[in-house]
Amino acid sequence: MNTPMVEIVDVHKSYGATSVLKGVDLVVNPGEVTVLIGPSGAGKSTLLRMINHLEKADRGLVLVAGELIGYRRAGKHLRELREREVLRQRTGIGFVFQDFNLFANLTVLDNVAEAPRSAQGRPAKEVYPLARELLERVGLADKADAHPRQLSGGQQQRVAIARALALEPKLLLFDEPTSALDPELVGEVLDVMKSLAATGTTMIVVTHEMGFAREVADQVVFMADGRVVEQGPPQQLLRTPAHERTRAFLNKIL
């Protein structure tokens, strides 16, 4: 097998006395879609944020495409990378937030064009056509000059996906991308995500949309209390879960 796209090894994290992750291991292969499910407080979002070093692990390693994230080996130490180096690593990892976090003061087009310009230093005349093309892809070409707050939640999230894609990342992370949306707007965002999955983008998605998991996921990972309880292909994990804990969770939400 080739190098995994993501390799998480024995990751621990606590905030003060609260232990959020208690030793998580996970492997995601290139081109796969992994869906993380589990009750709130299970540590799904924390784990996701650790993959692009928005959260630091207390113990354990995160590797993306074989590259250690956030640290480098320096003799007998693991030395944390400088901010500039962390920022560079993040440009290869797209992140989509639950509450979009589009830059409120910039137009939709500038939101998409900002990171390629300032994080990758690419020239404007190359970036803006790319940004328009991405907006076209998420079906929002006509909203290029609008400001984020003039859009619906679903439209904002589609812009956020286009913004993440603008860096041409090798990996896309979604943190409950549809949880802040009105029910009738969820579909348009999931459609965009499905089309991305179909193009072979490696994705890790924290979500409660079981339909999406069943239809798109290559593997589903069930987490509870800071641990991975079980994982497997969706038909197996969602239909015939091996653990009582998983069964209880699925019964509650299905």
């Binding site: 993040r90 990892i93 937030f97 976090n101 910039l106 913004r163």
Partner: peptide, 20 residues
């Protein structure tokens, strides 16, 4: 969230401040 998003996109610190 604005700073978080800028950091996730790898936008340099100084630019985060001046632009966002």
């Amino acid at each position: 969230g604005q700073v978080l998003a800028a950091a996730a996109l790898g936008i340099p610190r100084r630019r985060q401040l001046s632009r966002i």
